[in-house]
Design a protein around this nucleic acid. Structure first.
Length: 283
DNA sequence: CCAACTACCTGTTAGC
DNA sequence: TGCTAACAGGTAGTTG
């Protein structure tokens, strides 16, 4: 998916193309796209008609459109979701699951090949966060993100550090790509346990995470194919800068040792076996 | 509490 | 060429 930089690219697109408009018609196709909305797609359609989109917000990989009346339309892109600005006469995209006709005559379309993404309407709390997003921790782009507090939690855990980086309740927005890139930059093996690090070392690691995700954001995010695009359907270019993720067999940019790929939590970890040596007591 | 596993989907690619 | 298996950026739920 879209990890933090890619979701932020989409949020910015929605801030430009959706905020300030009114939803004239909302349309949902199938039950799955609204499965997190208990009352179902018909309820969503009815409640969204005529609502003003005040702003586009994000925490971690969760997006929402803040609406008048103190509610938010939550958008999670899952593994393959897209929010696309389209003209009404453009033919339907493959895997189109929702469509919003806006007061400026354009449309926002939710397109999702793997259907792990979805939409829901929820009440915003006093802090402007939708209830279903409350459990998500702040992300490194959040001015109030507290790296020392996140590090303090991680050093009490015997879990491997990569698992902790991917735990969205501790720090949000990091997925498989940027976890591997952050660990490569920090020269830490993904399975080194949290409690075998010092707090400052983890604060440094989180600094690398923020750095690499900021660098990715500046290039429009990471896209390996046309599934990961901004609201105008354009891909980012950060894939050219990846040092570890997907680079198995390619020399480490730092020491020249080939990057290795290992199976991890039903997916993969990529790291330099020399710069990121396996700890003696792993996980 | 945590780790490990599962489910949820479609599409692409590698290997035979 | 066609079949099959493995794999792909995530989250949430269950089980032990």
């Amino acid at each position: 998916m879209p990890e933090l930089p890619e979701v932020e690219v989409v949020r910015r697109g929605l801030a430009t193309h959706a905020a300030g408009r009114v939803i004239e018609v909302a349309e949902f196709r199938g039950l799955r796209v609204a499965r997190r909305h208990e009352a179902g797609p018909e309820d969503l359609t009815a409640r969204l008609r005529g609502r003003l989109i005040e702003s586009a917000q994000r925490r971690g990989k969760y997006l929402w459109l803040a609406l008048d009346g103190g509610e938010g339309l939550i958008v999670h892109l899952g593994m393959s979701g897209q929010m696309l600005v389209s003209d009404p006469d453009q033919p339907d995209q493959r895997h189109l699951h929702a469509r919003f006709r806006l007061s400026d005559g354009r449309e926002i379309r939710f397109v999702d090949q793997r259907t792990f993404g979805g939409l829901a309407l929820a009440t915003l709390d006093w802090d402007g966060i939708p209830e279903p997003v409350r459990h998500i921790g702040r992300d490194p782009f959040d001015p109030k993100f507290d790296a020392r507090a996140a590090a303090a939690r991680m050093v009490t855990s015997s879990s491997g550090i990569k698992r902790l980086l991917l735990n969205q309740t501790i720090v949000s927005g990091i997925g498989n790509i940027y976890a591997d890139e952050s660990l490569w930059r920090a020269q830490i093996h993904p399975e080194k346990a949290g409690d075998r690090h010092t707090k400052p070392a983890i604060v440094r690691l989180l600094g690398h995470a923020a750095d690499v995700m900021n660098a990715a954001l500046e290039e429009g995010g990471t896209s390996f194919d046309a599934l990961y695009v901004n609201v105008n359907g354009q891909s980012g270019y950060f894939d050219r800068r990846l040092a570890a993720y997907g680079q198995q067999g390619i020399p480490c940019p730092r020491c020249g040792t080939p990057i290795v790929r290992e199976s991890f939590m039903n997916r993969s970890s990529h790291f330099c076996p020399r710069c990121q040596p396996k700890p003696r007591t792993s996980s």
